[in-house]
Structures are given as C-alpha cells and as structure tokens.
Amino acid sequence: MPNPIELALGPLMVDIPGPILRAVDRERLQHPAVGGIILFSRNCVDAVQVRELCSEIHALRQPQLIIGIDQEGGRVQRLREGVTRFPPQASLGWAAESDGLDRARDLAEIWGELLGYELRQLGIDLDFTPCIDLDSGVSSVIGDRALHSDPYIVGELASHLWQGMDRQGLNGVAKHFPGHGNIAGDSHLELPIDLRPLDELEEDLRPFHRLVAAGIPAIMPAHVQYSALDELPAGYSSYWLQKVLRADLGFTGIIVSDDLSMAGAVGAGRIEQRVDAALAAGCELLLICNDEAAADQAMQHCLTRKLCAPRLTLLRGQDSPIDPTRLSSYRAAIEELRERFAKRFAKPL
C-alpha cells in the first residue's frame, strides 16, 4: 500500500456508493476539501468488511480522514452484521420508567461502552449519536429515536450514553439542535417550521445544556426554521449557532451540519451557496451525502476558497480500553433490553 499523502483536512464529509473503494473514490477522498467520510448501509456488509474499508480509508492520507456513521440503534443502524443489534434509544427511556432512572443510567453507559468498543475496533471515529430530540409524539422521523419526552431524563440518559462512548474512545454528535422532536415535518423532504417562542423552546434546549456540560465533542443543528427567532434554518443561523450554542450554552466543540443535500437545506441556493451559508453561521464540518455531483461542486468551491478545517482532528477516535471479559455481560444486558422493548411495544427489531 502506498504511503499516505500529507494533506490538511478540509471541511467536507462525503460518502461513497458501495462497500469497496473505487479509484474515483480514492481520488475524491484525497481532495484537499475533504476531511471525512460517512458510511451508510450500502457501505456495510459486515464487521470484517467495514474494518478493512476503514483501514484502507485511514491509509489514504495524513492526518487521517474522520470516519463517521449513523449507528443509533433501532431503525437507524447502518452496520448490522457482526456487531450488537441495538434497540431504538427509546428503550432506555422506557427502562427509566419501568426500572428506575438509576438502572437506565447504568444501561445507557453499558450501551455507550459496547457501542464505542465495537465501532473503535473497526476504525470508526465518530458516531452521529445520541439523538436528544424530545419525544413529543408528533415527529415520525424522530419517533422512537428519541430517548424520552422529559428533558431531564433525556439529558441524563444521553450524557451517560456519551460517557460510555467516550470511555472507549468513540466520538459522538448530539443532534438535532435546538430540537427536532416537536414538529411533524421531515427535514429530509421539506423545511419544517417551528412557530414556538424561545420560552417554549427552552425545554428542548435542556438536554443540549446537559450534553455540553458532559463534554460532547460535536453538535449537529437541525434543518428546521424556528421562525419566531430567526428566518434562517438553525444550520444556517448565526443566532442559533453563535449566540445560543456558542455564547449562551458555552459549546466549544465542532458544529457539524446535517446533510446539505436534504430538502430542508436547499433554500439557501446552489450547493456552493449552501456551503457558504453553513460556514458563515459557524459549521466546521459539512455533510454532503447521496449526491456525487453536488459533492464535486462543493469540493471545487472549497478549493477555490482555500478552505481547511484543522480542528477536525479533535474528532479522531482513540484506543478502546475495555476489559474483554465484560463484553458478554454487556451484550446480554443490551439483548435483554432489546427483547423487553420489542415485547412491550410489539415491534420487531
């Protein structure tokens, strides 16, 4: 394998179409504007194949690209073969109701440690979890991805899940700031509009306060317009990202845009304009997924502007120190949680 090229990380996180790297994929991932890659289900055959893919990606350049994945559990788990099948994160909220918050906190840490161990063994640096939107009962795109409806419970469980991940060297992303759970619209398909004033949004913000205090390294804003406060969606809004997230909440980590190819993001214009709007608002890592042409246009635009993102090295995963003798008990605890949740809600997982 040739020596990696020396190249600073750029601000874009892109994807590839399949489970192996083609020559064109290697060329794209060695572009100066790229700083990371996100893996989807189409990239994940099983754990062995993903480990080999991650190894090849990390060998392409130095500093190494950041490898991310959506591995929340339930219906949002891109890699399913050769790793633990986690239930929806709502199962932790249900455990808090049925077994008490202390037991649910313990399960959340076990979940985070096991998730962190498994993904770090494969070479994955960053998991786009926890989802800390509140379960208001109106958002189908969030639904059982939400931990609970009570912001205190959400903050407690999410912070313990994150602490388990962190203990195993896996970085996390709290999403979707300042909260996507109280609106029915799906930002993959449209720009949802939340009409609530700030005093009503404070409940949604409480879990983000908790995760910032816990040291979460990255936060993802929602492609949602909170029209009582700003006409721009949160991911393009200096009000939300600079005033509220940075100044009010004191967040100093990496702000990661949601996918700029989603319908909720296209109102800013062409992909070049979307990139500029997200960067101007304060995003440092920009996702562009499922659209190779848009990714190529964005890469050229960033190259023209000579953009780089040196802070992205903060998202590189660390060595996982778990005691292997604990893995079987951890997996048994998650399997019991999974089975109880499926039985309680009559949902096949």
Rank of each mutant, 00 (worst) to 15 (best):
F40H: 13
L241C: 11
R42G: 06
A295I: 01
E335A: 12
L189K: 14
K306S: 13
L249G: 08
V138I: 15
V14I: 15
E339S: 14
L249A: 11
Q242T: 06
L119A: 00
W162L: 11
A295M: 13
E335V: 05
P348C: 12
D166F: 00
F177G: 14
G172F: 04
L115T: 09
R145A: 12
L147V: 11
D296I: 07
D199P: 01
D186H: 06
V50W: 05
P11S: 05
V154W: 11
S257K: 12
Y152R: 12
D135V: 00
L157T: 10
L157H: 02
S159Y: 00
V275T: 08
C131E: 02
L189G: 02
H58Y: 03
V45A: 13
K306T: 11
W94L: 15
V34Y: 01
S55E: 15
S238V: 09
P87S: 13
A184M: 08
R78E: 07
A277V: 01
G74M: 10
D150Y: 03
D204E: 07
D291A: 15
L201Y: 07
S329C: 07
G282T: 10
A263E: 13
C54F: 07
A108Y: 03
L29R: 05
V48G: 05
L279V: 01
A158C: 03
E72V: 02
L115G: 00
D296L: 14
L119H: 03
V45G: 02
L249T: 12
